[in-house]
Simulated scan of single mutants.
Amino acid sequence: MSQLWRYIKTIMGIVFRHPITGATIIPVLPDGRIVLIRRQDTGQWGLPGGIVDWGEDITTTVKRELREETGLELLEIRRLVGVYSSPDRDPRIHSISVLMEANVTGTFSVKDTLEVLEVEAFLPDELPLGNLSHDHDRQLADYFQGLTILA
Rank of each mutant, 00 (worst) to 15 (best):
M1A: 14
S2R: 15
L4V: 14
R6G: 04
T10N: 14
I11K: 14
M12Y: 08
G13H: 13
G13N: 15
F16Y: 14
H18I: 01
T21P: 00
A23W: 03
P27Y: 11
L29H: 01
L29S: 04
L29V: 09
P30W: 11
I34W: 05
V35K: 05
R39H: 11
T42L: 04
Q44E: 13
L47G: 03
I51W: 03
V52E: 11
D53N: 14
W54L: 13
I58E: 13
I58Q: 14
T59Y: 04
T60I: 11
T61D: 05
V62Y: 12
R64H: 10
R64V: 09
E65W: 07
R67Q: 13
T70E: 06
G71S: 08
L74M: 09
L75F: 01
R78K: 14
G82M: 02
G82Q: 05
P87L: 02
P87Y: 07
R89A: 04
H94A: 04
S95N: 04
S95V: 12
S97H: 12
L99S: 08
A102R: 06
V104L: 09
G106Q: 11
T107Q: 13
F108R: 09
K111C: 01
D112M: 07
T113W: 01
T113L: 05
L117W: 00
L117H: 03
E120V: 06
P124N: 12
P128I: 07
G130E: 08
S133E: 11
H136W: 02
H136A: 11
D137P: 04
Q139I: 04
Q139A: 13
L147D: 07
L147H: 12
T148A: 11
I149C: 02
